[in-house]
Computed example of a mutant assay.
Amino acid sequence: MEIQELKVKASQIRMDLLTIIHRAKTGHTGGSLSNTDILTALYYEIMNIDPANSKWEDRDRFIASKGHSVESLWCVLADRGFFPREELETYSQFGTRLIGHPNNKVPGIEMNTGALGHGLPISVGMALAAKRDGRSYRVFCLMGDGEQAEGSNWEAAMAGAHYKLDNLVGIIDRNRLQISGSTEEVMGLEPLDEKWAAFGWNVVSINGNDMEELLQAFRAVPEVPGKPTLIMANTTKGKGVSFAENVPAWHHHVPNDEELALALSELSASIEELTQKGQVQ
């Protein structure tokens, strides 16, 4: 897809995720909005996947360690054809497969996640298995920044470097906010990039809401052979909705009717602007 198409797609995914959260009256809105560009870059341009064969042995693996921000992932998987789009209407309803965290009963989900600090250790195991089995697939693991306070992440970071897993990509959705406020007030993380580098990872810091920067970073992997890559994706929590951006309460705020209408209007205007810009170019 062209850059403009990817940007339009990201705005459409944001509209979808806001709609299903509003319908279900539950969800993690801010983080899903911040990680949408990351997921769009991966699922529409970077990862080697086949929605018609979700268990293909040589597929790239994606692990959503920050499993609470699942709404964007559900919308991307539905749009890519892993399951019918109509099923999004069942999100968080009784008996649904589309629960509030990734559920491996759904095609495209490798494992159940949600307990923070679990995704990267399992990703290390998957990447190590690929190396030992002579497989070419890569493993992408999306983590939250508040999740960096979990010690299991640092054990996994040490193992990833020790086994020279250059087929492993860790991504931190660095929006600097967690449920109880600023990450630096709750549990200071900085200098976060230097810490990951000290654990033996190749660290790339980018604007995680900039599609060009995301694609450039992902396409360069492995930039340093023999080293896993950590992409520090600096994002804005609530990205794409002006009144939700950088507002801690939107971590799990459910938009009311008025807020949903306003948010969808803003995103529609963004799509129209992007479309017109693409036509002019």
Results as ranks from 00 to 15, higher is better:
Glu272Ala: 12
Met111Thr: 12
Thr29Arg: 06
Val76Ser: 05
Asn48Glu: 13
Ser136Glu: 12
Pro121Thr: 05
Leu214Val: 01
Lys237Arg: 03
Gly278Cys: 05
His118Asp: 04
Val254Met: 07
Pro255Met: 11
Trp201Thr: 07
Gly95Val: 10
His118Phe: 05
Ser54Gln: 02
Leu18Met: 05
Lys66Trp: 07
Pro84Leu: 08
Met126Pro: 02
Lys105Ser: 12
Gly238His: 11
Ala127Asp: 07
Leu192Trp: 07
Ile99Gln: 12
Gly240Glu: 08
His251Lys: 02
Lys9Gly: 03
Asn35Arg: 12
Tyr43Val: 03
Asp79Arg: 13
Ala149Arg: 13
Met211Pro: 02
Glu245Gly: 06
Tyr163His: 14
Arg23Ala: 14
Ala129Phe: 05
Gly160Val: 05
Gly188Tyr: 08
Gly119Arg: 01
Ile3Thr: 13
Leu262Asp: 04
His253Ser: 08
Ser182Tyr: 13
Asp257Val: 05
Asn256Asp: 15
Tyr43Trp: 13
Ser34Pro: 05
Gly114Cys: 11
Leu88Lys: 01
Val106Gln: 08
Ala269Leu: 11
Gly151His: 12
Arg219Lys: 14
Trp201Ile: 02
Leu17Tyr: 08
Glu245Leu: 09
Ala159Trp: 06
Thr96Tyr: 08
Trp250Lys: 11
Ser54Met: 00
Ser182Ala: 13
Pro51Leu: 10
Asn175Leu: 05
Glu5His: 12
Gln4Val: 11
Arg135Ile: 03
Asn103Asp: 13
Leu98Arg: 09
Glu45Leu: 02
Ile99Leu: 01
Asn207Arg: 10
Gln12Tyr: 05
Thr235Ala: 15
Ala41Asp: 05
His68Gly: 08
Gln148Tyr: 07
Gly238Ile: 12
Lys25Cys: 02
Ile21Phe: 09
Gly181Val: 03
Leu230His: 08
Asn256Ala: 07
Lys105Gly: 04
Leu267Lys: 07
Pro255Phe: 05
Ala127Glu: 04
Phe218Leu: 13
Lys25Trp: 01
Ser92Ala: 15
Asp58Ala: 03
Phe94Cys: 01
Gln281Lys: 10
Ser152Asn: 15
Val203Trp: 00
Thr275Phe: 02
Thr183Gln: 06
Leu116Gly: 06
Asn175Gln: 03
Ala244Glu: 00
Leu33Asn: 01
Asn246Gly: 00
Lys55Pro: 00
Gly100Ala: 12
Thr26Tyr: 00
Leu165Ile: 04
Leu230Phe: 14
Thr26Ser: 15
Lys25Ile: 02
Asn202Thr: 11
Lys277Tyr: 03
Glu2Phe: 01
Lys25Asn: 13
Asp133Ile: 00
Glu89Ser: 14
Met158Ala: 13
Gly100Asp: 04
Thr40Ser: 08
Glu110Ile: 00
Ala233Val: 04
Ala161Ser: 15
His162Glu: 06
Ile171Asn: 01
Lys239Thr: 03
His101Arg: 09
Ala41Thr: 06
Lys66Gly: 03
Gln178Glu: 15
Thr26Asn: 11
Gly170Thr: 08
Glu273His: 03
Gln148Met: 15
Gly151Val: 08
Met211Ala: 07
Leu267Tyr: 02
Asn104Lys: 14
Asp79His: 06
Ala156Met: 14
Asn53Ala: 04
Ile122Arg: 06
His253Pro: 04
Ser123Ala: 15
Glu45Thr: 03
Ile46Asp: 09
Leu192Ile: 15
Thr26Ala: 13
Val139Ile: 13
Ala269Met: 09
Leu42Thr: 05
Gly278Trp: 09
